[in-house]
Write a protein that binds this DNA or RNA. Structure first.
Lengths: 104, 104
DNA sequence: CAAATCCATAAGTGTACGCTTATGTAACGT
DNA sequence: ACGTTACATAAGCGTACACTTATGGATTTG
């Protein structure tokens, strides 16, 4: 379940841009493609990678495939970063620590 | 200043493991190598990548090179994630929002 | 039914990446 | 001074990756 390559999924600039664009709201593949200078298969391949990493979900409707950001997708990434919060600059680290304490 | 490939630097599992090991404290290249089944040049190359991404700093002492985690290194990553905190699960998102409000 | 649209998968290609061995530079030990 | 240790860089190699074009399945439209 844990997607070990959430980092790899976000490593590619184009794929990261696709994710960021989906953050504006649910979108079909064709709509998504409009913002990029790459082919439709390339978009589909990026979406498959993001989906494999648990970062986006797909909703089928007829011949359309709507993709959206998975709210829980960035969770593992946040968890990983939290392991090293002791190394963050003091201002941020203090707040993050507080956050942990408040977590029920 | 912004290192756009902080994601790429952390994408490789071995390199991420190197970073995680450095989180235990400053270490020389040889000490670091002891924990891995790869050659010394491979370690040095990973360190160069981490250094290029601003995740690690180097301290020279004689013929030794000591590496340590750069406290500010994960900053850009945290900032990027924060842009999408509205997509996080409600429990986390609420706390993160609170965190923002408390930030002077 | 036929043509068109939406999307995914297959196959091929160039390049980037992670690794190796080989070599070089600098500092230490004897 | 000479060998050794610590590390980096160069060169080469195999593989993974991001892209392309080609094709196919499924749905809608005319």
């Amino acid at each position: 379940m844990l997607s070990p390559d959430i980092f790899k999924a976000l490593a590619d600039p184009t794929r990261r841009a696709v994710f960021e664009r989906l953050a504006d709201g649910e979108m079909s593949v064709t709509e998504l493609k409009a913002g990029f200078a790459i082919s439709q298969p390339a978009i589909s391949q990026h979406l498959a990678a993001l989906r494999g990493a648990g970062l986006v979900t797909e909703r089928r409707e007829g011949r359309f495939a709507y993709y959206r950001v998975d709210p829980a997708g960035l969770g593992p990434l946040v968890d990983w970063i939290d392991r090293y919060r002791s190394f963050w600059p003091e201002r941020i680290g203090r707040l993050k620590t507080l956050l942990k304490e408040m977590d029920p």
